[in-house]
């Protein structure tokens, strides 16, 4: 499987106090551990188990994902715009891999 690629969409600017939506998507098979291959053998579980978003170092949203999350997991959440800064996001894989993305926000 290719290295999971995160994609993030959120407004680049916001007024102070606005609540903005962040939409994220990452390419990943999210192998549930329930599926069997052609030989009838169970395909081992391998999912992204955790997602975390921090704005200027402060946590704003997190998600613990379990095998019932669809492949190429989509996650949206909200953020209250108080000051300009950057949103740092990290996806943690079962195999220990961490995939990162950041997005900048200018608050007027």
């Amino acid at each position: 499987m290719a290295t999971p690629t995160p994609r993030v969409r959120m407004p680049a600017t916001a007024k102070k106090g606005d609540i903005i939506e962040v939409k994220t998507l990452i390419s990943h098979d999210m192998e549930s551990g329930q599926r069997k291959d052609a030989d009838g053998k169970t395909v081992p579980r391998k999912i992204i188990r955790h997602f975390a978003a921090e704005y200027n170092g402060k946590p704003v949203f997190s998600a613990d994902w379990h095998p019932s999350i669809s492949a190429n997991p989509y996650q949206s959440f909200f953020l209250r715009a108080e000051e300009s800064g950057s949103l740092a996001m990290a996806w943690t894989d079962d195999d220990g891999g961490i995939y990162r993305a950041t997005a900048k926000l200018t608050v007027t």
């Binding site: 704005y55 613990d64 379990h66 019932s68 669809s70 996650q75």
Partner: peptide
């Protein structure tokens, strides 16, 4: 399926995802 964590900085206790 999932557990979502929020803080006051979230501004809104809302989340969307896709499930099996």
């Amino acid at each position: 399926v999932a557990k979502f964590g929020f803080t006051a900085a979230s501004g809104r206790a809302s989340a969307s995802t896709r499930i099996r």
